[in-house]
Structures are given as C-alpha cells and as structure tokens.
Simulated assay, not measured.
Amino acid sequence: MATWHKQGDATCECAVSEDVENGFCSSAGSVREPLGPQGTSATGNEHKRILRRFPGEWFSSHPVLTAVLILLLLVLVLALGVALAVQSAPQVPVTPATPQLVLGCPHGWVGSNGVCYYLSRDSRSWEQAQERCSELGASLAILKDEAMDLLFRLRGNVDYWIGLRRRGERLHWGDGSSYSSRVPVLGNSQCVYLADDKFRSEMCSNERPYVCSKAQAAL
C-alpha cells in the first residue's frame, strides 16, 4: 500500500512502512533517509559508532596479538632510548695500541731460531775477527747443533773462523761453555774454523773469513 505526499509543487508516492512517519518523499518519488537530531543521517551516525567501537573490540578479541604489539612497542622505545643515550654520551678518545715488537736481523745477516749470523767477506786473524764481531754487537759464532747444519750449508767452499778455541786440553766457546757436540774437531791447534762438514783447528794468527752471531733484536 502506498500513500501520496505532497512536497512543494511535487507529489510523490511513498511506500507504507513502520518508519513512514519519520521519512519524507524525494522529488523522484523515493524515500530519503531520516535525519538525526543535528541534521545528519541516522545511518551515518551508526557507521561512526561502529568505527569508534571497532578497535576496542578487535584488541579484546585478539589478546595474544595485542600483547605482541605492546611488547614490540616497548622494545622500540627502549632501543630508541639506548641509541639516544649512546649518542649523547661523551666520546672517549681511543688510545693507539702499543706496537708489538718485531724481532729480526740486520740487513746482510741470516736469522735462525732467534739468532742472527753474519758471514764476513774479509779475512782476519781469530783475535781480530773477535774484535770485529764485538764492534757489530756480536761475537764469533757460538753454535748449537742445528745452527751447525745451517752454516755448513751456507759456507759454500769458504772456511770461516767460529768462536771455539782450545784452552788447555779442552775446547770452549767464547761464552766459557764447554764444547760438547757430535761434530768432530780435527787437529790440536788452538783456534777452530768451519771446514766441509766438520771443524778443523789451526794457528789463531792465520787470517780467514769469520762468522759472527748475536740474538735477534727489535727492528
């Protein structure tokens, strides 16, 4: 059933319904939305109430996700606070590290097991060779067995004085220690030199090249 309403100069037909009293006809003959107390649509007010109510309902229906979001927010706030604190902290000057000592041998010397060896190119008597080695901060070579093997390889065809000398019936190194090596010493003269793969002795006044030795030091 329809009822006719006159609105201005136009007449429109409205369907009879329970809400017809609250509606009014449009010029096209359709029923418009009833207006709220402030002149707004009742449906629009309802939508706004739903939107205002939606976040609270979502959080209450998803407690786990809500807790996770809160935790993430706290972490972000904490990280931001730490970053600001670090940035505002006074910068401590960095002290350069103490350089590590590098041990080595001077140019022209050969290093092995912490010892430097110098093979001379000039010839001197045993005493003169000892003095020259002393000027270089060393002494005529005092050799351990492993150093003997090295110098036997380095000597080539040259015979070198070493810091071994006979005192009485026994052989002693320049530092006073007794000679106790597997390498034999041939001859009964006082001063000893490298020869082939063994040691030989002869008069200390004879001149020949010499080997000096000293401990490795910081370069």
Rank of each mutant, 00 (worst) to 15 (best):
V192P: 11
M1Q: 13
C25K: 07
I142Y: 00
G81M: 13
V211A: 05
T40M: 03
A67Y: 08
L73H: 09
S123P: 00
G111S: 11
E57L: 05
P55H: 00
S213R: 00
G187Q: 02
K48V: 15
V86T: 01
S120N: 02
D197P: 01
G156D: 04
S181F: 11
A195H: 13
R167M: 13
L80I: 03
E57D: 00
C12L: 09
T66Y: 01
K144P: 10
L73A: 11
Y160V: 07
M203Q: 10
D197L: 15
D122Q: 15
H5D: 01
C25T: 04
V94A: 06
D197K: 15
Q128F: 04
L219Y: 00
I162K: 06
P93Q: 11
L73W: 04
P55L: 10
L84Q: 13
D159L: 02
L65R: 11
P37V: 12
K48G: 12
E21H: 06
A28T: 15
A141Y: 13
F24M: 10
K48E: 11
R170A: 12
A10H: 15
V94N: 02
E131N: 13
C116I: 08
E46I: 02
R32C: 12
W4S: 01
S134H: 14
H5E: 12
D149P: 00
V110G: 00
L143A: 04
S120C: 08
S112W: 00
D122C: 08
R132Y: 03
L74I: 08
Q130W: 13
R170G: 08
A79D: 13
N188S: 09
L72R: 13
G36C: 07
Q100H: 01
D19E: 07
R153W: 07
V16R: 00
W58H: 06
R170V: 11
A28Q: 14
Q190V: 07
C14G: 07
Q87Y: 12
C133W: 00
V92Y: 02
G29S: 06
R52I: 09
A2D: 05
A195S: 09
L69A: 09
V94G: 00
A138T: 10
M1I: 11
R208T: 06
A138R: 04
P34D: 01
V115K: 14
D197I: 07
D196L: 14
A89P: 00
I162Q: 12
E18C: 03
L73V: 10
L194H: 09
G8P: 04
